[in-house]
Amino acid sequence: MAEPAPQPTINDNTANDVLYEVADHIATITLNAPQRMNTISGPMLNELTQRLVEANQNADVRCVVLTGRGRAFCAGLDLKAERSGDSLLSSASSPTNLDLRNTPPTVMHAMDKPIVCAVNGGAAGYGFDLTLGADIRLLARSAKLAVAFCKRGVVPESGGTWYLPRLLGWSKAAELILTGRTLSADEALAAGLASEVVDDEALAARARALATEIAGNAPLAVQAAKRMMRMGLNEPFNEHVHHVFLQLLPLMRTQDFQEGVRSFMEKRPPDFQGR
């Protein structure tokens, strides 16, 4: 008798600001504070960090989908929490001891597991920077990206000043940051900030399909490829090629490499095990 299919690991307590589910090698992380447009409080930020780390460390996870619940992806920091002393910034005793090593943008940048961000609605401020930390961005047609930092008297504090010049070039990045402009989904696609724009009701399924396609590839190779892309952002070409070769050698000794070759020769889908 066939063994029953494994049930997804899920945390669906609506009291939690971040939902986490693992099924079919895909971890889905959902910002779950729709009543405040998924604005980030201190506890929510810590929970999001923990879930990202958990997904990256789980050998069963091959791809992560990050999305939001409700009509917004994330409208930035929770200003009500800021006034009550329960936010990212107010949690520090002074501006000189903010520990940013374990916050979502830095954790996302260091992750080897690929991240698909399904932007289900508005992404502003901190929420906009979160989208930039993903490897692939899919936008619902109603989604908007608000680069509104300078309009609020601050700078993109969680990666925007690093990502945008690399994604768009200096001139376009400067235009967006210095004007604080808001982009529609189609404008974001035209600018190169999104891979695809889909109808709102199709977003979740499209993100799942893309994550499934990624998860069907050899996971060690996928993670190595992402790692090499990240390293290549700051390496000269000759050094980078050397590092890629050093990464290639152990991959060619894996069972998945042998399976990839066999499945190609036998004209069948591969069955990768991450070994």
Rank of each mutant, 00 (worst) to 15 (best):
A72R: 05
S93V: 14
E82L: 05
K113S: 08
M111P: 00
R83Y: 11
K113A: 08
T96Q: 10
P95D: 04
H109F: 11
P104G: 03
L98M: 14
E82N: 15
T96N: 14
A75E: 11
L79D: 06
S90L: 04
L88R: 03
M108Y: 05
S84K: 13
D78G: 04
A92K: 09
S94T: 12
T103V: 09
P104H: 05
N102V: 11
E82I: 03
P104K: 01
A81Y: 02
P95R: 07
K113I: 15
K113T: 10
L77G: 04
C74F: 03
A75N: 11
L88T: 01
S90D: 03
E82S: 07
R101K: 11
S93C: 11
M111L: 11
M108T: 02
S91K: 02
D78M: 04
L77H: 08
C74T: 00
P95E: 05
L77R: 06
L77A: 05
C74Q: 00
D86C: 13
T96F: 08
K113V: 12
P105K: 10
G70I: 06
R101W: 11
S93K: 15
G76W: 00
A81S: 07
N102R: 08
N97P: 01
S91A: 04
F73H: 00
K113G: 02
C74E: 00
T106L: 11
S87M: 03
A75P: 08
N102F: 10
L79P: 03
P104V: 01
A92R: 09
N97W: 09
E82F: 08
L98C: 11
A110E: 05
D78C: 03
R101N: 03
L79T: 03
G70W: 07
R101L: 05
D99N: 15
M108E: 08
P105L: 05
L100Q: 14
L77M: 04
D78F: 01
D86N: 12
P105H: 09
S94V: 12
H109Q: 13
L98V: 07
A92Y: 14
N102C: 05
L98W: 08
R71A: 12
S93N: 13
H109G: 12
A92I: 03
M111K: 04
N97M: 15
P95V: 09
E82A: 14
R83E: 14
P105S: 09
P105Y: 03
R83H: 09
S93M: 15
G85E: 05
L89V: 10
A72I: 01
T96Y: 12
A72C: 04
P104W: 01
D112I: 14
T106S: 11
D99V: 01
G76I: 02
D86Q: 14
G70E: 05
A92L: 08
L100T: 15
S93E: 07
R71C: 12
